[in-house]
């Protein structure tokens, strides 16, 4: 759109851009403060300690498992929400988005309570299905906190796919399943991938529910956010800062990837 005639600088542009600059500068100052507090050597030493390495490894393993679960759930759920209308769909929508707005620690409390009920006790009694204070519990917490983001992205991605193209695929010899796999899924791929990345980044950073449901046992249920807490609680700021910077880098990479996926249609023509 061509620019409007008249002065480029006016009070609306000055005020809004000033707020923008203040906010961005504030975030950058915080990051710079972290970076300049410590030295690269101190950070490398901190990241090399066995506890921190174990926490990073457990974070990667649990979030990878969470990512698989999130993808498996968010695609069919997002598709169902996008394509089908049913009584109570507004309530279902609200329930699905609840974990986005509720305090994450409540999820940990709810899980703890659930696993004290008869059903929860029965699940815990099944060999290999222990969740409370175990890495599986970490995955469960990460999943419950992050899956809503992926479902919301999945629904939006399928909303963006013209349903008539799936119908047309049916007239071209496809079953409903094949129309989904050949038309809806590939056309929604960027939105689905962005949702998965967002959910994964969210899973990497959760802390509150883990403290309640999985505990903060060193080298056992310790993931990166737990490390930051544990190290700070004993006054060791260098390792806490090193892990914080690592999580910050992960978050930045995730955001870059999400934006790249949002622009991908320009390269792939979808």
């Amino acid at each position: 759109m061509p620019p409007v005639a008249g002065p480029r600088v006016h009070w609306v542009s000055v005020v809004t851009i000033a707020f923008l600059v203040v906010f961005v500068a504030g975030v950058l100052v915080l990051i710079a403060a972290d970076l300049f507090y410590t030295s690269p050597q101190a950070m490398a030493d901190a990241l090399g300690s066995p506890e921190v390495r174990a926490a990073i490894r457990l974070s990667l393993i649990t979030t990878a498992a969470t990512l698989v679960l999130v993808v498996c759930f968010s695609i069919p759920v997002g598709y169902a929400l996008s394509r089908y209308r049913f009584p109570g769909s507004v309530v279902v929508d609200a329930i699905i988005e609840l974990p986005i707005v509720m305090p994450p620690v409540v999820i940990g409390v709810s899980l703890l309570v659930f696993f004290r009920t008869a059903i929860g006790q029965w699940i815990e009694s099944v060999p290999g299905l222990q969740f409370v204070y175990t890495p599986k519990g970490i995955v469960l917490c990460q999943f419950l906190v992050s899956v809503s983001y992926a479902i919301r992205a999945s629904k939006a991605a399928f909303d963006g796919v013209d349903r008539r193209l799936e119908d047309l695929a049916l007239t071209l010899g496809c079953t409903h399943g094949r129309a989904f796999r050949w038309v809806a899924l590939p056309m929604a791929r960027n939105g689905l991938a962005a949702g998965a990345v967002m959910a994964w980044a969210r899973a990497v950073g959760i802390f509150g529910p883990l403290m309640v449901f999985a505990g903060a046992v060193r080298m056992k249920t310790e993931v990166m956010p737990t490390t930051v807490y544990l190290e700070l609680s004993i006054g060791r700021i260098e390792p806490a800062l090193a892990v914080s910077m690592l999580m910050l880098a992960i978050a930045m990479a995730a955001l870059v990837l999400i934006h790249a996926l949002g622009q991908a249609h320009r390269w792939w023509g979808t």
Binding site: R164, T171, L172
Partner: peptide
């Protein structure tokens, strides 16, 4: 639809 042996071209062509 897939079993009817009827081809359909919509108004906007509906290319994938």
């Amino acid at each position: 639809p897939r079993l009817r042996r009827i081809g359909y071209v919509p108004q906007d062509y509906g290319l994938f």
